[in-house]
Design a protein around this nucleic acid. Structure first.
Length: 753
DNA sequence: AGCACGCCGACT
DNA sequence: GTCGGCGTGCTC
C-alpha cells in the first residue's frame, strides 16, 4: 500500500487505485454514496467532489473515507470521482458534524443539508476562491498627473485624487470608490486619458464584504450602565460554553452588551457570529457595530448576490471577517476562530425555517456553541417560552436588563374598550383623541396592525356572499390602492368584483387593514404627514432604509404598519404607540397565539417614548376584561410568560413536550390524509409513549390549489419522539401514495398551520 | 429530485 | 401504425 496519509486518516490518496470516498450528494435520499478515487487523485474529508450519479454529474462533499478492507473485492463496481474540487476541506470536521446532527434531528437528507449550508456558487462547483475583481490602477502618467488640470472635470478629479492615495490600485467595489457615488463615467474618462488602467485581478482576500470602516480606527468601548456592566461581567465570568438569555426591556441597551462582549472576544483573536431574524435588521446592526468595532465584518443573508455571498462566506471561513452578521442560514457558516454567538430577537419565529430543511437557527446556534465551546447569548425583550423554560431548568442562565438606559421611563399602557364608544373605520374616539394630543405636543405616533391591505374581506350587503380565493380556503383581501383583490396565502390577484354575483347586491369591505387605517387617519389628520410601512408599501431594501431615515428626520408624524414596523427598529420621536387588532390573538386556537401576542404587544409598546419623553401605549380591544390582557398590562411580560409556561406545563404542551408535525399535500383532496393514515399505521406499532394524532385536514385545508393534511406526534420528550422517528422517516418514501403527495416532517413546529 | 424504462389512448 | 401520458425503479 502506497497511500499518502496526512493528518491521520483524513486524507485519501491513490495507492493501488483503491482509495474510497464516502460522498453526501444533494439528492432527497437518506444515504451517502461511495466512490473510488482515480490514480493520482487526492481527497480530504470536507472537500467537494464532482461525481457521476446515474446519468448526470453532481457536486457532493466527502464526508468520510471508508476503509476498503476485506470488503473491497465486492466494491470494484464503484464509480470513479470525476474531479476533486477542493485540495483542503471546504467544511471542517466540526461543521460536518453539526450538519450531520442537523440532518439526523430534522430528518432531512444529509446531502441536502450540506447543500443548504453552502453558497450557491460552491454548490454548483465553483472554486472556493474570492471571485476576481476589476481593479483600477494609475499609470505612470496618471501618477504624475496634476489634479489642477482636471478643474473642469470635478468627478475625474475626485476619482484621480482617491487613486493617487492608493498606489496599489483600487477594486471596483472598494468603499473609497463607492463613496464617490457615480464614479464609473469619470473613471472611463481617466482610462481614455491614459492615466488609469483597468484590469481583472485574482485576490486572496476580500476587499468588499469584510471592508472595515475607516472611521472606526480604534475600538470605542461602550460606557456601560450598572445593569449592562453586570450582564457583561456575568457572561465574561465564565469560560467556554454556556447559554445566556439576555432579557432586556426595549431601550435597555442590549446592543451595548453585545458590543462589549464582542470587543472582548475580538481582543482574544476570536470571531463573533451574530444572528438576526430578518434581513431588514442587518444594515442598522452592521452600522452600529462598524461605528464601534475597528474590524472587518461581513453580512450574510439571502438578499445578496451569489458573488457577494460567496465572498462573505469565504471571508468568514478564512477568519478575515471578524464579525459575521447574518440571518438564520448563517448559523451554518464556517469560521476559523470560534468566539461568540449572539442570537438577537431570539423569540422571533422567523428564526425557524418553514420549508425544506425546517431548522431553528436559535436551537442550532445553541448546539453549535456547545460543540465549539463558545458562549451563546440569546437576546430579547420578550424571551421565548422555550428559552425561559431552559432558564427555569437551570440549563440556560438569565441575565436581565430591567431598566431603560439613560433613565427613560417605561411607557404607561392603557386598554381602550371598543364596546363603550363610537369608532370610525376601526379607530376609537379615545385613540383619535390621543393621537391628536400627541401630535399637538410634537410627538410622533405609531399604529400597529398586523394586517395588510384595505380590508380582509369584501362582503355582499344583501346576501352575505364574500369574495373567496379560487385556490385557497380563504377570503380575498381588498387592496384599495392597487384596486385588486389579493389572496395573502397564495399571492393570487384578481380584478375587483363590482356587485355580488349572486344577488347583485352592493359589496362592502369588512374589517380593517393598514390601508383602511391609513385612509381614516388621513381624513382625521389631514395636516399630519403619514407613512404606511408594510410589504405592499415598502418594497426593496433601499425603500426601507429611505423611509426609516425620513421617519428619523421627523418628516412623518404618523406611522402605520405591520410587524415590519415592530421588529427591532428604534423610533426615538415616537411618543404614542397604538396597537390594533389584538382580539383574534386572544381567541386563537393556536397554542402559541398568546405567547406571540404578549411578545408583539410588549415589543410595539417598547417603541414608545424612548428618550426623556414618557411614552403612552393604547391597546384597542373589544375584550378589555380578558385575563390575559389584564395580567400583561398589570404585571408585564415577565409575569405573563411565567403564567403561560405554567399553562403549557399543565396542558402538556411544548416546551414540556415534544411535537413533530408530519404534513402532506396533494392536488386531490383525499390523498394527503390517506398517505398520512399509512404513515400512522407504519408508526403506531412502535409508538409507545408517543401520541399519534390525526390525520386531520390542516386549519386551512386548501391552499394554492393543494389540499393539506397533518399528522401530529406528541411525545413527553424529544428523545422519545426521536426514538420513534429515527430510522423510520427515511422509509416514508416507500409507503403507498408517497409519490403522489408532497410530504414533510416538521420537528418542533412553530407554525401549526 | 432527475432520469430512464414501460405499458395504454388520440394523432400525422 | 407512432407520440406521449405518468406509474415505478434506481442512482455508489
Amino acid at each position: 500500500m502506497r497511500g499518502i496519509w496526512r493528518r491521520g486518516v483524513d486524507v485519501a490518496a491513490f495507492g493501488l487505485g483503491f482509495m474510497l470516498v464516502r460522498v453526501a450528494l444533494p439528492v432527497p435520499l437518506y444515504r451517502v454514496f461511495d466512490y473510488r478515487l482515480a490514480p493520482g487523485q487526492v481527497a480530504v474529508v470536507g472537500a467537494r467532489v464532482r461525481v457521476p450519479f446515474g446519468r448526470r454529474a453532481l457536486v457532493g462533499v466527502v464526508v468520510a473515507l471508508p476503509e476498503p478492507g476485506a470488503a473491497y473485492a465486492a466494491r470494484e463496481d464503484l464509480r470513479v470521482v470525476s474531479d476533486v474540487l477542493d485540495a483542503v476541506p471546504l467544511l471542517s470536521a466540526a461543521l460536518l458534524r453539526l450538519l450531520q446532527w442537523t440532518a439526523d434531528y430534522y430528518h432531512y437528507p444529509f446531502g441536502e443539508v450540506i447543500a443548504t449550508a453552502l453558497p450557491g456558487l460552491l454548490r454548483g462547483g465553483a472554486p472556493a476562491l474570492f471571485p476576481p475583481v476589476v481593479f483600477f490602477q494609475l499609470t505612470a502618467a496618471g501618477l504624475g498627473a496634476d489634479l489642477a488640470a482636471l478643474r473642469r472635470a470635478p468627478r475625474q478629479q475626485a476619482v484621480l485624487q482617491v487613486l493617487q492615495q492608493v498606489p496599489g490600485g483600487l477594486a471596483a467595489d472598494d468603499a473609497r470608490l463607492l463613496a464617490l457615488g457615480n464614479w464609473r463615467g469619470a473613471m472611463q474618462g481617466l482610462v481614455q486619458r491614459g492615466w488609469v488602467v483597468r484590469e481583472r485581478r485574482e485576490r486572496t482576500q476580500d476587499t468588499s464584504a469584510t471592508r472595515q470602516d475607516a472611521s472606526a480606527t480604534s475600538a470605542t468601548l461602550p460606557v456601560l450602565n450598572a445593569d449592562q456592566a453586570q450582564a457583561v461581567a456575568t457572561v465574561q465570568g465564565q469560560a467556554g460554553h454556556r447559554v445566556y438569555v439576555l432579557e432586556g426591556v426595549t431601550g435597555s441597551g442590549k446592543t451595548e452588551v453585545y458590543l462589549s462582549l464582542m470587543a472582548a472576544t475580538l481582543a482574544q483573536e476570536r470571531q463573533c457570529l451574530v444572528l438576526v431574524p430578518e434581513i431588514a435588521l442587518t444594515p442598522q446592526l452592521l452600522a452600529r457595530f462598524r461605528a464601534r468595532l475597528p474590524v472587518a465584518m461581513t453580512v450574510l443573508h439571502s438578499g445578496l448576490s451569489e458573488k457577494v455571498r460567496l465572498q462573505g462566506w469565504l471571508a468568514a471561513r478564512s477568519g478575515q471577517a471578524r464579525v459575521i452578521i447574518g440571518t438564520r442560514s448563517a448559523v451554518f457558516v464556517p469560521w476559523a476562530q470560534p468566539g461568540l454567538i449572539v442570537v438577537d430577537e431570539e423569540h422571533d419565529a422567523s428564526l425557524k425555517q418553514h420549508e425544506g430543511l425546517r431548522y431553528h437557527a436559535r436551537d442550532l446556534a445553541v448546539l453549535r456553541g456547545y460543540r465549539e465551546d463558545v458562549p451563546v447569548v440569546l437576546g430579547s425583550a420578550t424571551p421565548s417560552l422555550e428559552s425561559l423554560a431552559n432558564v427555569a431548568k437551570g440549563a440556560y442562565q438569565c441575565v436581565r436588563l430591567p431598566r431603560r438606559a439613560g433613565g427613560a421611563r417605561l411607557p404607561s399602557v392603557r386598554v381602550v374598550d371598543m364596546r363603550r364608544q363610537w369608532h370610525d373605520e376601526g379607530l376609537s374616539v379615545s385613540v383619535l383623541d390621543a393621537i391628536s394630543a400627541h401630535l399637538e405636543a410634537g410627538g410622533q405616533v405609531l399604529l400597529f396592525l398586523n394586517r395588510r391591505g384595505f380590508a380582509p374581506a369584501l362582503v355582499c350587503e344583501g346576501c352575505g356572499w364574500s369574495a373567496q380565493c379560487p385556490q385557497c380556503d380563504a377570503h380575498l383581501t381588498w387592496h384599495q390602492r392597487a384596486g385588486l383583490l389579493c389572496c395573502h396565502h397564495c399571492g393570487t390577484r384578481s380584478a375587483p368584483v363590482r356587485v355580488c354575483p349572486g344577488c347583485q347586491g352592493r359589496l362592502r369591505p369588512r374589517g380593517e387593514g393598514t390601508q383602511r387605517i391609513e385612509a381614516a387617519l388621513a381624513r382625521h389628520f389631514p395636516d399630519a404627514p403619514l407613512v404606511r410601512i408594510d410589504r405592499d408599501s415598502t418594497q426593496g431594501r433601499e425603500a426601507f432604509e429611505q423611509v426609516f431615515a425620513a421617519i428619523h428626520a421627523q418628516q412623518y408624524r404618523i406611522l402605520i404598519g405591520t410587524q415590519m414596523l415592530a421588529k427591532g427598529h428604534d423610533f426615538p420621536g415616537v411618543s404614542l404607540a397604538v396597537i390594533l387588532g389584538v382580539d383574534q390573538g386572544l381567541f386563537s386556537t393556536d397554542f402559541r397565539a398568546q405567547e406571540r401576542l404578549a411578545q408583539v404587544i410588549t415589543q410595539v409598546a417598547g417603541r414608545a417614548g424612548r428618550a426623556e419623553r414618557p411614552g403612552e401605549v393604547l391597546i384597542q380591544t373589544f375584550h378589555p376584561e380578558h385575563p390575559f390582557l389584564r395580567t400583561l398590562l398589570q404585571s408585564g411580560y415577565a409575569v405573563v410568560s411565567q403564567d403561560l409556561l405554567e399553562q403549557r406545563r399543565l396542558a402538556g404542551l411544548p416546551p414540556f413536550a415534544a411535537f413533530a408535525l408530519i404534513r402532506a399535500e396533494a392536488r386531490d383532496s383525499a390523498l394527503g390524509e390517506q398517505f398520512l393514515a399509512a404513515v400512522r399505521a407504519y408508526l403506531l406499532p412502535d409508538a409507545q409513549g408517543v401520541a399519534v394524532l390525526g390525520p386531520v385536514p390542516a386549519p386551512m385545508q386548501r391552499r394554492a390549489g393543494w389540499f393539506r393534511a397533518h399528522l401530529l406526534l406528541h411525545a413527553p420528550s424529544r428523545s422519545v419522539l426521536q426514538r420513534l422517528l429515527r430510522a423510520r422517516v427515511c422509509e416514508f418514501d416507500a409507503l403507498p401514495l408517497a409519490r403522489q403527495v408532497r410530504w414533510s416532517v416538521d420537528i418542533d413546529p412553530v407554525d401549526m398551520g
